[in-house]
Nucleic acid binder design. Structure first.
Length: 460
DNA sequence: CGACATGATTCCCT
DNA sequence: AGGGAATCATGTCG
C-alpha cells in the first residue's frame, strides 16, 4: 500500500482523536470541507511534540512493551491500537497523560503522518547528501589493500610473507637463496606487523559491528516516537561503516609505512658491507692465485669455498668477480700478494709432499683436472708451484730464496721434481679463454730472466 | 677527514 | 646464467 492511500485512510478517521463524533460519516465529510482536518493535524503534531519531551524509555515501556519496532510502518490496521491499550495500565504518570500518549500512538493517523514526515525527511536528506551517497571504492584504500596483499601482510597466511621477502631479495638483485639470516629476520618482523595488523583490524571490525548494532537498535527504538524510515537506518549504518573504514584506512596506511620502513632497513642491511675475516680472505686468495690461469671456480668449488669461509656462494662469486677485475686492472699492485700466496701454497705443497713421501707413496698425487678444486691442496698445489716456476707468475726477487728453499725441499721429497718433469703439469699458461691474455703481468718486480731461471736454481 | 680498500649492486654483453 | 666493467657505499687507516 502506498503512502497516499494510507494517508487517505488516516484522513477518513481524522476527527476521532479520542473524541466521540467519529462514527458519523456525514459529520466527517462536513469537517473535511470546513478545514477542520488541518486543525486536527495541528493537534496531533502538538501532541507528538509533547511526547518527545518524555523519555524514550517511558514511551517504550508504556506503549508497546513487546511490539516489533517497525510497527508503525508495517500495519495500517486502525484496530491495532486497541491491542496496545493493554500494556499501558501501570506506571506513575498522570492517567490523562498516559491516555493522551496512548491515543496518539494508537491513532490510525499516526502511520500516515509518520510516513509523510519520513518522506519529507527523506527528500531533505537526499538533497543534502546528494551524490556522495553512492561512493565508489576508494582508490587509495584499494592501493593500500593491494600493497598489503603484495607484501604478504593481508591475504592468506602462507608463511607470513616469505614471498615478499623473496621478492625483496629478487628486487635487490641478490640471490634469493642466500642471506637466509636476513630473510628470517625480515620474516619475523613482517609476521609481527601482520599480527598487529590483524588484531587491530579485528578490533575495529568488532567495534564497528557493535556500534552499528547499537545505533540500529537505538534508531529502531526511536522509530516509535520519531519518523525514522528503514532506509534512514540503512543510511546511518552506511555512514558508520564509512567512518570506520576511514579509521581502517589509517590502520592500513600505518601498516604500509611500517612495512616500507622494515623493507628499506632490510635492503640497507643487505647493502651494508662488512669485510670478510682474514682467514676467509686467505682461503679465497689462495684459490685465486693457485688458479691464476683460470680463476673461475666451479659451482662446487664455490660452495666449498663458501663453506670454508663462512660466507655465501654469491659472496664468493662477488669476491672472484671483483678480484679478477681488480687484478686485471692493476697487476703490479697485486704482484706482491700473488707471490705471497704462491709461496704459501708451495709451503703447503711441500708439507703435503713430505707427508706423501713419508707414507711411502710415490709422488703421483691425484692430478685432478684444474677445474676440480679440493681444499686439501692436491691438484692446486702444483698450480701454485707452477706459478713459482715463474711461468704462471713472476716472482719478486726478495722471495726468490724462499722459493729456492721450497724447491729444494720438494726436490728432496721427490715431489716437485717429478711433477715439473712430467708433462702433466707443464704450464699451459694460456688456455682457450685465457683471461690473462690481455693482462699479462708486466714483470714489474721481477727481472725478465729466462723462464727456466728458477728451475735452474732448484737444480743447485 | 680524505684516500684507499673492498663487498655489493647494476648494467650490459655473450 | 655467468662474467666484465662501472659504480655505489661503507669500512679502515694514516
Amino acid at each position: 500500500m502506498d503512502d497516499q492511500t494510507r494517508m487517505m485512510t488516516g484522513l477518513t478517521g481524522l476527527g476521532g482523536l479520542a473524541q466521540a463524533d467519529v462514527g458519523d460519516p456525514d459529520s466527517v465529510r462536513k469537517q473535511q470541507s470546513l478545514g477542520q482536518p488541518q486543525q486536527d493535524i495541528g493537534d496531533i503534531l502538538q501532541q507528538i511534540m509533547a511526547i518527545t519531551d518524555e523519555s524514550l524509555d517511558e514511551a517504550q515501556a508504556r506503549c508497546w512493551p513487546e511490539e516489533s519496532p517497525a510497527h508503525w510502518g508495517g500495519s495500517d490496521d486502525p484496530t491495532e491500537g486497541g491491542r496496545a491499550g493493554g500494556g499501558m495500565a501501570g506506571g506513575g504518570l498522570p492517567l490523562n497523560f498516559q491516555h493522551r500518549k496512548h491515543a496518539l500512538n494508537c491513532h490510525r493517523m499516526k502511520p500516515a503522518l509518520f510516513s509523510v514526515l519520513c518522506e519529507i525527511k527523506e527528500k531533505t536528506v537526499l538533497s543534502i547528501r546528494g551524490v556522495q551517497e553512492e561512493d565508489p571504492p576508494d582508490p587509495q584504500i584499494m592501493r593500500l589493500d593491494n600493497m598489503l596483499l603484495a607484501e604478504g601482510v593481508s591475504g592468506p597466511e602462507k608463511g607470513g610473507g616469505s614471498a615478499a621477502a623473496a621478492a625483496a631479495a629478487a628486487a635487490a638483485g641478490g640471490s634469493p637463496t642466500d642471506s637466509s639470516i636476513e630473510h628470517s629476520d625480515y620474516r619475523a618482523k613482517l609476521a609481527q606487523i601482520r599480527q598487529i595488523y590483524h588484531s587491530e583490524l579485528e578490533k575495529y571490525e568488532q567495534a564497528c559491528s557493535e556500534f552499528t548494532n547499537h545505533v540500529m537498535n537505538l534508531l529502531r527504538e526511536q522509530s516509535r516516537t520519531r519518523p525514522i524510515s528503514p532506509k534512514e537506518i540503512e543510511r546511518m549504518v552506511a555512514i558508520i561503516h564509512r567512518k570506520f573504514s576511514s579509521i581502517q584506512m589509517q590502520l592500513k596506511q600505518s601498516t604500509c609505512e611500517a612495512v616500507m620502513i622494515l623493507r628499506s632497513r632490510f635492503l640497507d642491511a643487505r647493502r651494508k658491507r662488512r669485510n670478510f675475516n682474514k682467514q676467509a680472505t686467505e682461503v679465497l686468495n689462495e684459490y685465486f692465485y693457485s688458479h691464476l690461469s683460470n680463476p673461475y671456480p666451479s659451482e662446487e668449488a664455490k660452495e666449498e669455498l663458501a663453506k670454508k669461509c663462512g660466507i655465501t656462494v654469491s659472496q664468493v662469486s662477488n669476491w672472484f668477480g671483483n678480484k679478477r677485475i681488480r687484478y686485471k686492472k692493476n697487476i703490479g699492485k697485486f704482484q706482491e700478494e700473488a707471490n705471497l700466496y704462491a709461496v704459501k701454497t708451495a709451503v703447503d705443497a711441500a708439507n703435503v709432499s713430505a707427508q706423501a713421501s713419508q707414507a711411502n707413496s710415490p709422488a703421483t698425487p691425484n692430478s685432478g683436472s684444474p677445474g676440480s678444486y679440493s681444499l686439501s691442496h692436491t691438484g692446486d698445489t702444483y698450480l701454485g708451484l707452477r706459478s713459482l716456476n715463474g711461468e704462471g707468475l713472476n716472482i719478486a726477487p726478495p722471495l726468490q730464496p724462499q722459493v729456492d728453499t721450497l724447491h729444494r725441499a720438494t726436490h728432496l721429497t721427490g715431489g716437485y721434481e717429478e711433477l715439473s718433469g712430467s708433462g702433466l703439469y707443464t704450464p699451459h699458461r694460456l688456455d682457450a679463454n685465457s683471461w690473462q691474455d690481455t693482462t699479462n703481468p708486466p714483470s714489474v718486480t721481477s727481472p725478465p730472466g729466462p723462464p727456466g731461471s728458477v728451475h735452474s736454481d732448484t737444480s743447485n
